[in-house]
Structures are given as structure tokens and as C-alpha cells.
Amino acid sequence: MTDAEVVLAAEYVLGTLSDAEAQSVARQLETDQDLRALVTWWEQRLAPMAALNDRVPAPDALWSRIEAHLPAARDLAASAESAAVVELRGALRRWRTAAAGFALLAASLAFVGIAIDRHYRRDLGASYIAVVNRGGDQPALIVRVDVPARKISVRPLAAEAPSGRSLELWYIGKDHAPLSMGVVEKAEQMPLPAAFAAENASFAVTLEPPGGSPNGNPTGPIVYSGQLLKE
């Protein structure tokens, strides 16, 4: 790589080239792997500067506009929704027969299942449920939120931590830091966090040192997660 190429790639990433220069680089990138690698290098190394900006919540309507432009967005949403409902029903059925016991799933560091949030309502009198799992697998935990009673109940089904580590449950609300709900060991009830809001809420389980995170923030990888659904 010549110095000129290094600077050309950097200025392309910075955006300080003239239009003609930038278009010429863009054309060159289609065939020049070395230049492509150089541009990628700069993109990666300069990217931390993007986090200097204030975050600005996008207006709610923006997602609807994006969704409307997705090809077959409705089909995607519908199929994902029905899959989530099936999964949820299955989870509830299994949960009701949980006394029979479940084979423990080995905890995996692999991510993660995402349920769907199309069921959200701004109904504060409701109860909600999150099936916390690793995707298509059997649920690891059921988290139930009873808003009128201000209670959260947690029931581990198939969550297993590697020896010497603890599983810690986090409530992840919109636009704030994860809030520890404690180490997951047995079924228990806990008070609803003051900051609780059902919209876009999810729960995640991370792998932490014995007894839980030493500093009150998640320190280990997410091993299970699930979003909150209206029950």
C-alpha cells in the first residue's frame, strides 16, 4: 500500500473527497480488494467516533414507515407472530406440567431467541409473560409480570449454569441500562422495578461470577433472552 492509497481510503471514509474522487474510489472498490480492505480498516478504526454523538430516539412513526417498505413485511410479521404464539402456548403447556421435571439443557453461549412484541398494549392493568430461551429450544425460564400486583415471578425450567458460574436475570427496558433481577436459582417472586414499562421490554440472562455480577452491571455473555408479551 502506498501512502497515497492509505490517505485516499481514509479520506473516502471521512467523506472529505470531492464528489468525483469519491465516485472514482467507489468504482475502484468494486474490483480492488486491497483498497477495499484498506477502506474497511479505516471504517472499523474510526467507528468509535460515531458513539460521540448524543443518541436521539427516533420517532415512533419511523419504524412503521420502514416496515411498510419491507417486501412482504406483513407476511414476515404474520409468520413470526404465529410462530411466537405457538412457541408461547407450548411453553405454557410445558410450564403447567413442569412438576414432571425437565431435562436440563446445557447452557450455551450461543444466542438467543427473540419473541415478538406485536402483542404489546399500553394496558397497565395487564399481566405479561416472557419466555426466556435460546431460540427454538425449550424455554429456560418463564418470567411473569403481574402489573396490578406489582410482582414479577420467575420460574426456571431448563436453565443451567456451568459450574462455578451463576445465571443472572436482567430486565431490559427501553432506553435505560439493564436492571438486575437477581441470580436465577429457584422459582421466586420479586417486586416490579419502579422503572418497569412493558413496551419493548425484554429479559435476558447472562453468565456471571458466582453470586452474580460484581458491579451491578452485566459482565458476561447473554445466554438466554426473551421479550415480554401480553398474556
Partner: peptide, 18 residues
């Protein structure tokens, strides 16, 4: 996966919009 896309949007849109 449209659901994953919505989740990705939820996690990243304030940074990119900003």
C-alpha cells in the same frame, strides 16, 4: 427475519438517528 430486524432497529436506531 422481520422480528430480528425490528429488534435490531430498537437497539441501534437512537445511535444511527443521532
Amino acid at each position: 427475519d422481520g422480528v430480528a430486524f425490528k429488534t435490531l432497529y430498537g437497539r441501534t436506531s437512537s445511535l444511527l438517528f443521532g
